[in-house]
Each structure stands twice: as structure tokens, then as C-alpha cells.
Design a protein around this nucleic acid. Sequence first.
DNA 1: CCCGAGCTATGACAGATGTCACTGTTTTTA
DNA 2: TAAAAACAGTGACATCTGTCATAGCTCGGG
Lengths: 204, 204
Amino acid sequence: MIKCLLVEDQTLVRLGLANLLNLDSAINIEAQAEDGLQALTLLAEHSFDIALLDMRMPNLDGLGVLQKMREKGDKTPVLIITTFEDCDVLVKALNLGARGYVLKNIELEELISAIKQVVAGERVLQSAVTDFLLKKELSPQLCLTDKEQTVLQCLSLGMPNKMIAKKLDNSEGTIRNHVSQILAKLDVKDRTQAVIKAINQNLI
Amino acid sequence: MIKCLLVEDQTLVRLGLANLLNLDSAINIEAQAEDGLQALTLLAEHSFDIALLDMRMPNLDGLGVLQKMREKGDKTPVLIITTFEDCDVLVKALNLGARGYVLKNIELEELISAIKQVVAGERVLQSAVTDFLLKKELSPQLCLTDKEQTVLQCLSLGMPNKMIAKKLDNSEGTIRNHVSQILAKLDVKDRTQAVIKAINQNLI
DNA sequence: CCCGAGCTATGACAGATGTCACTGTTTTTA
DNA sequence: TAAAAACAGTGACATCTGTCATAGCTCGGG
């Protein structure tokens, strides 16, 4: 019997998923959390064979939970279950030791088999995900640097160059250069398009 | 026994929700659709006491389904179940005759009671939703005109003024005026912020 | 019939934005 | 260690953006 922790903020989805998974005789959802903090508490108090983690949550998101788990030396295998085809988040999650990453539109049987594979020590990545990794591998120069990430985040909050410069304690010219670089890497023509792309691809 | 049609694109969520709702002795999910087109087909072939509609879907979204239903004179009561606190979409859905609008983070018991209320002919709006309606009512001058809507859509595609002007067959100056007007109504300082707001509040 | 609202347009203006070229410093890495 | 990135900065430049004042047109409601 596989002991699972299910972490998902939307009550309906969480309860529904728990029900579905419990129908499988090999799987048992032993605990549920509706945000990252609850998840950490449960992980500290009990031991699970696997943790099913949603990415977007209030208080502490999936990445945050992974981070804290690693800091504490918690080795519970983690399977990320998320809505969006992501990019950076995927890479970050894998770097933080996530053992699998699947999208919510996965079929039930696939999810169950993914859970069993992760518990068996395998890595599970959907093809949509590996495709992305390949693309990324083939064009590493398109990756944003840390600073560019930061600036992009500011852009996504609608900040003008001047304000970004003040916030990051740089000259406006420097910010302009960073923005220019971001536009080139994202292959767009202006900040608005950059923000749209960032939001769509969840680069932020 | 309440005959339900459940429309939701994410397999996991759909199956999970169907399971949960079927646990209630008064509710029976008789059919499921994973996009708007399937939903329309099922609605045409069978009769249901209520349709539970997700908003964001491939092919044809919730609003599209509502629209088509109204065109066909289909009077099946509709309860919208969506992830995001919305704005325009909410108003549009209600205008298209949706009988209820609830967020996905609702508790299961509340959802079940909402379903029963809608079937009983009542209207169901969560307080978050009614709050918004009130706010909207108090500031009607903030509504975008049709043209402004169109321009905002173009903005959300990342188009510069010149391109919008060409596409809508206007002078660039006219577009600038419209944009200016949009910024004032949305209470933001530039097009980027406008797009961010539009995406977040789903004004597009 | 007239008023207001929506749409169109123009010109002028200030400021924001993005590009380029060039110069450094620091940190990473091969 | 030496080369390569990342980071910070400047100045100049063309263009885009947003604001304002002003004005003409059309259409529907009072």
C-alpha cells in the first residue's frame, strides 16, 4: 500500500482526486494539505511514500515546499501535478529534486502509473515536458540570467524603467539594457509583448 | 434524482468531481464533456436538470456554450464553476442566463447545495461575486465601449498603435486616443499595466 | 428637435522606450 | 590562469507612447 500525501489548494479538486486515487487498491491518500505550510507540518509529523504537490498555492507554493524539504533533508519522493506547461518552474523543481512532473490534464491511469513509478524510484516526465527540456538544451543562450529574471518580474508588475532602476538600485540606462536583452531573448518587440509571453509561458 | 451534465476539460478534476457529486444520493452525473463542443452535442441529445460548466476550455469556452444554448433556445439551467474571480466574464455569463456562478475553491457541501438551489430555480452567487457586481454598479462609467474592448484585445496581443490602426482601419492618432481612454478607465499608467490588468481580470 | 455619447481625426508636445556602441568590474568556469 | 559571462554604466539617437485641445460626424432617447 502506497502512503500518499496530497497537497492541493482547491477543495473540490483535492477531495475529488483523493477519492479517485483511493479507488486504486495499491494507493492510499493518508493525508491532505490545502497549502504549503500545512504540507510541511504533515511531512514533519508523518512519513509518506510519496508527496503529490500542486504548484500554485497560497502561503507557500510547490517550489517553496520542495526547497524547505531539501533544507530539512526530507527525502520523500515528490511528484509535481500542475495545470500549466511551464518552463523555468519545471527546471527549478527538477533541480530541487522533484522526481516527476505531470500536467493536470493527464489521464487517471497515467497518473496512477506515474505514482507507482515514482515510488519505485523512477523519474516521470510527460512528453510535453521532455520536449521542453530538449528545446531548452538546444538553445541555452535563450535562458534569462538571474538579473534578467528579476527585471522581467518587475516588467510583469507593470513597472516603468525608472521605477525598476530605483527598486533595484541601478541606473535607468542599465535597466534599459537589461530590458533590451530580455526582448531579444524572448524574441519580442516591446515590453508589453514580453509581459504577455512571460504570463503565458509562466516565466515569472 | 438530479440529472447533471458535467463539463470540465481537465480529466482528473472532471472524474474527481463526478465521483464526489455522485456520492450525494440526490445527484447523478449522467454525462461528462471535456470541452464545449462535446457539451453542446450532449445537450442536444439528452435533457438534463442542470449543466455544470467550467469557464476555460479548449475549442469552445463556457461563454461560447452559453451563447449557443441561448441561440438554440435550450433552457437547461447552468451553474458556472470556475477557478478565477472574474469580472466581465461573470457579467456576460449572467446576461446569457447563467443561473449561478461559483469559484472552484468552494466547499463540497456548498457546491451541492448550490446545485440543488439552481435546480430549484434559485440564483446562486458567492459573496465574492456579488461584491464585484455591487462595485460595478457603483461605477458604470468605467465600462469599456465596444471599440475600446476591441482595442484592448489588440493591446493584449502585444500590438503597437500603428498595427492596431492598420488592422482596425483607423488613424494612429485615433488609436492613441482610444488607448488613452482605456488607461483612464482601467486606472493604469501605460499599455503594459493595462494588459496585465486585462489578463488578470479577464477583461479580454 | 436637440443633446449626449460614441467614433473619428489632427497637431503639438513631453516623456518613455528600445537600440547601439563602448567601457569597465566581478564572478564563473574551462 | 585566461577566457567567457554576468553585471553596471554612459551618451546619443530614433521611435513609440500617452496627453491635451479641438473639431466634425452619426445615431438614439428625451
